[in-house]
Design a protein around this nucleic acid. Sequence first.
DNA 1: AAAAATATGTCAGCATTATTGACGTATTTT
DNA 2: AAAATACGTCAATAATGCTGACATATTTTT
Lengths: 158, 158
Amino acid sequence: MPRQTSQKAAKPELLATPMENAGIIDFEIIELLFFAYRDFVSDPDQILVKSGFGRAHHRVVHFVNREPGMTVADLLETLKITKQSLARVLKQLIDSGYIRQVAGPEDRRQRKLYPTQAGRDLALALAEPQSRRIERAFGGASDATRESVKRFLRGMQD
Amino acid sequence: MPRQTSQKAAKPELLATPMENAGIIDFEIIELLFFAYRDFVSDPDQILVKSGFGRAHHRVVHFVNREPGMTVADLLETLKITKQSLARVLKQLIDSGYIRQVAGPEDRRQRKLYPTQAGRDLALALAEPQSRRIERAFGGASDATRESVKRFLRGMQD
DNA sequence: AAAAATATGTCAGCATTATTGACGTATTTT
DNA sequence: AAAATACGTCAATAATGCTGACATATTTTT
């Protein structure tokens, strides 16, 4: 008596049934998050190839614009990457004139980061299609619904 | 008369004000998505380093488990990566005994992909902490709220 | 049956983003 | 004066992605 009811059973331990864990694990949301994020970053990615930048540059230019005067340490903490990973992209953004460094007025060891006008423009251009996508995803949802989504996303963080 | 009201104005075009676009662009959700996804993938990442695999392996083993019998072409369409990018990780997963290939019964050019028991176990182990995180993020939300979140995430896709 | 199309595998080379660990300099704190 | 901190930099490496070309087996079209 075969242990598998499949038609072939060529190799004994092949699983032909979808993983569906009886509702214990929420595969649906796991996949929705994957697809949502995959397409969410695809918009800026397309813009960035034209400037020769990548996703890492996007993140840096975004957060520096959101919080001008943040330090290199702040940025490392926000992005959760290593100093060396940041160094390259930050240098390129500085060399290209999108970001400038200013020695901290109180602690001169710090390098406070500020966007130039070009940096601001770039950050806005990258955020625009993402924002349109978000608006489309809400599709006229109520403020309460929007709050629910935000609460969920906040809860996903460590 | 200086064009900027900042204290230093060392370099004229430094922007010291946070990018806040008067509500035209939804920076908050943009950032929430970044942070949520960053932490969402960190759980499986930690597990994967032990097996010597990475995020790409996770995606492959996940989708093959969710839809056993899917072809290589299906997987490329789902992941939206190139054949060569997939080839490496898929080969490693096959060599390590997590996934097996079976020639398509109707179209023998196809390679249908199936998880082994080890592959199923791995996919479940990776999904578990993500599922727990999702449950925590919902924090006892109603079914209606859960549906709103799903609708939002679905709407984020192309 | 021959030609074209398809599904997959593979080769070679390259880019981006990430890692670790070490070390140097300037500056601040102890 | 010594220790700690913030930052920059060097060297080496890994994971994941890309392009373009080409080979094989198989199926579909002509």
